[in-house]
Structure formats: structure tokens, C-alpha cells
Design a protein around this nucleic acid. Structure first.
Lengths: 238, 238
DNA sequence: TATAAAGGTGAATCCGCAC
DNA sequence: AGTGCGGATTCACCTTTAT
């Protein structure tokens, strides 16, 4: 099921402890030099003076609110994955801890083809964080499925290339995640017929892979054009 | 110069803005009932009294206090590297931000030979974080030196094996860092004759490599036996 | 002297049972 | 029922010993 709308509003309509697995790729809200990122897109802030502090409090409140809904929706054995960079991962972790999530692993998605440096004064950014956390004391983990990927115990650094062009045939999204990444996440932490939720669906990779792997899925996207993109992509699966 | 004593006390005696580079491997506070693998056997995580939470009134205040001294000692162009795991990295980052440090990169030290899982309910821990942060607006970075390591722009995921036995000939320390790791850090962020400080010297890798690379060095270690170990190691260099 | 085999090691909040 | 203690098996790589 795909929803068009604000993720918090839509999640409020869903039942307590009805979800097995959540993947979330939230906006990062960078606030550098009057620029902000919304749905992964850099936009100028046109509200006159940029109030960093207000922005900071609002973005953290937003983070708290959607994570709180995720917590309510998750089953006791459920878990959540949240992607980020060093710009937002610390704020996200703090809100998660407040709510009661317990970290399982922090996965490093190591991109095999990172972009070059613009300014030569630091190291190339070649990875993203993905926090994996649980609600209850016991979570589901498919050790066998992960073992079989490389025929050894899976570690927490994953070398996966950035999105391939072939995965973008249904339209463009700025922070589209690779199918291989979602495959691994869904296989690691859900079973067939489990319910998978993505509150920031974007291009739809989460639901696309969930459907392929015979999971039930709920995707929420605020922007019409991305909602339509995800819908087209879903419909390409029989 | 090596000092035996509490790092905060010793740092108080040093001059403002006298240091170019700091590497710090503080307690991670995980010697509290966790389990680890040692010599193929399950054992309690016990790195020593220095790593136990119960030996500190308030671990976050302790973190704040030593970082605050580091900030005072750093030159405007100086930078600091702090290692950690997900157990402490979020607390460290928060205190660093409070003090005014600005993150440059968060390096992932990816170990090529991580220990296996004891419990098959999560991913193998195969890396440590190293936060790299600066004091002022401009920091020193040796782009060329980093480029030359792999003949391409250096990225922020570093594949470096755990400590080799040959590096342990002067004595044992439970959290010794590999020489290759410190080499890269010192080459990336200091010049010859710069002053390098390590407030938690341990086995002495930081000063050992600093000396080899013709940097001046200050190392502080609280425990007599590790202070002596580091001293023996330093004296092995002509 | 090579090469093979055997032995050693590592910054993880787990689970079951006894008391 | 809460607390405390001990356990059986895993991986990649290095080092030492045996052939």
C-alpha cells in the first residue's frame, strides 16, 4: 500500500504494533549558509533571516515526532533502520535514545564509487551511516540469509555501489537508495509476509524490494511526483 | 616528552595554543558486563579499571573536561582525532560540539580481521569510529601525502588490520592501536617538527610514530605499567 | 630453504541455569 | 523473581613449529 501525504499524519492512522520492519531515509536538514535540504534536495531558504536555532529545534522536534510514531507502530520483535550522514546521525541517535530505541548495529554503507573532493582539505566522503535499532529486548535477525551473501558471518561494513542507472528508469530521485542495500536490510530483519514500512518513500526502493521479496509493504511519500514515480515502479512488478 | 599522571592535571600545566595535533583513545566505558572474545574464548569485557564507568563520577563530565583542555591547547589551525565505538561516540560528539569543535570527517577504521560473533543475533563489529575535528576555521591537511598512499584521493573508510604481534614486543596493552593507523593520521594532519599530543597514551603508538615521522610529541599515561611500556618503546628508536 | 600445518588472538550488554 | 555466574563455537589473519 502506498500513501500520498505527510508521514506523521499517515502513521497516526495505523495500528499499534502492526509493523515488523521500518526503513527510513529522512531529510537531513543541512543548514549551511542559508541552504536547506528537503527530501534530499538543496533549496534556498527564502524566509529572510535564517534562524539557525529555531531551525535546529524544529528539525529535532520533527525527528522526534516521526520516530515516536515509528516506535508505536513497531511490534516488540520489530526493528528500524535509519540512514544518515555525520550531519544528522548524531541528532537522530539522540532522539532515538530518548524514545527508547536500542541500537543493534551501526551499519556503514561503503560506496565503492564515491564522488571526488570539491575542496582538497579533507577526506572523500565515501559512506553513509545506517542505524539499526530495536524496540524490545529481542529482535528478528536472519543469520542464515546474511551468512549466505558472502558465505561467512555478515559484518557491519557493506560495500555496495551507488545507484545504477538501470534502477532509475522510472524517474529521478536525488537520494534514491540502491536495490542491493534494501535487499540486504529486508533479508536481514524480516520474514516473508512480514509488514515493511517506509515513511519517506522517495523513489520507492523499499517497497519495490519488499514486494519482490514477498513482504507486505506500506510506503508514505509527501511529494506528488515522487509518489507517482514510486507507483510506476511498483506497477512494473507483476 | 612522556608524562605519568592524570591527563587533565598534566594538560593544565601546558600552554594555550601550543599543540598542532591531538590523537585521543579515551575509555569507551564498556567494561561493564559485556562479553568479548579473547584467545578464542568468551570472556567478560574487562580492559582494566580505567575503562569502568564506576570509576568515574560522571562519564560525560569527564569527557567534557579532557576535551575542553584539548581545545585550549590546540592551535587555531590544529585538529583532533578521537576514537570510539557506538557505545561512546555519540556522547563524545555531543561534548565536542558543546566545546566548539567542528567535525571535518568521521573516519571508519575498518578492520580486515574482526572477531567472529558470539551470539548470532546481529552483524559482526568490524570497525571503529575516529572523529576528526578542528578548532578554528582552517585546519592543516596534507592532501598530497594522503593521495600518495593509494595513488588516489584518500577516502574516509580505512581498511587497516588489527595490531600485529611484532608491534607488541615491548609489552601488552588491551586496546593498542596499529602503527599504520597512527601513521596515516599523523601524515594527514601534521608537518615535520609539529607538536603531537596523546592524552591517553596507553602502549604509546602515537608518540612512537610521531617520533619516527620527526614530529615533537607529548604523551600522558595514568598507569605506571603502561607508562613504562611506552617509555621502553620510545627508547627503542635512536 | 621452502612449504605446510598447527596454534594464537581480538574495544560485543547473550542465554540458561543455579541459588 | 531477581541476581550472578559460566559457557561452546565462530572468522580472518598472523606467527611459530614441523616436515
Amino acid at each position: 500500500m502506498l500513501y500520498l501525504g505527510d508521514c506523521i499524519e499517515v502513521m497516526k492512522e495505523l495500528n499499534n504494533e502492526s509493523i515488523d520492519l521500518i526503513f527510513a531515509d529522512p531529510p537531513y536538514f543541512l543548514s549551511n549558509g542559508g541552504k536547506s535540504i528537503n527530501s534530499g534536495k538543496v533549496v534556498s531558504v527564502n524566509k529572510g533571516e535564517w534562524d539557525k536555532k529555531t531551525n535546529y529545534m524544529n528539525t529535532n522536534l520533527f525527528t522526534y515526532n516521526w520516530l515516536k510514531e515509528c516506535y508505536r507502530l513497531l511490534k516488540e520483535s520489530g526493528s528500524i533502520w535509519v540512514s544518515g550522514t555525520h550531519h544528522n546521525v548524531f541528532d537522530v541517535e539522540r532522539e532515538m535514545k530518548k524514545i527508547g530505541f536500542k541500537i543493534i548495529n551501526i551499519v556503514i554503507w561503503h560506496k565503492s564509487d564515491p564522488p571526488p573532493l570539491i575542496y582538497k582539505n579533507k577526506l572523500r566522503f565515501s559512506y553513509e551511516f545506517i542505524i539499526w535499532a530495536k524496540k524490545g529486548t529481542k529482535h528478528f535477525f536472519d543469520y542464515e540469509a546474511m551468512f549466505n551473501v558472502h558465505n561467512t558471518e555478515m559484518e557491519d561494513v557493506w560495500l555496495i555501489p551507488a545507484v545504477q542507472l538501470s534502477e532509475k528508469q522510472f524517474g529521478y530521485h536525488p537520494t534514491q537508495k540502491p536495490e542491493a542495500l534494501l535487499e540486504r536490510i529486508i533479508l536481514a530483519s524480516s520474514k516473508e509476509f512480514d509488514v515493511v514500512l517506509d515513511p519517506f518513500l522517495g523513489s520507492g526502493t523499499t517497497c519495490y524490494i519488499a514486494k519482490k521479496l514477498k513482504r507486505k509493504y506500506i510506503g508514505i511519500e509527501k511529494e506528488e511526483k515522487y509518489y507517482q514515480l514510486a507507483k510506476r515502479r511498483m506497477e512494473s512488478i507483476l
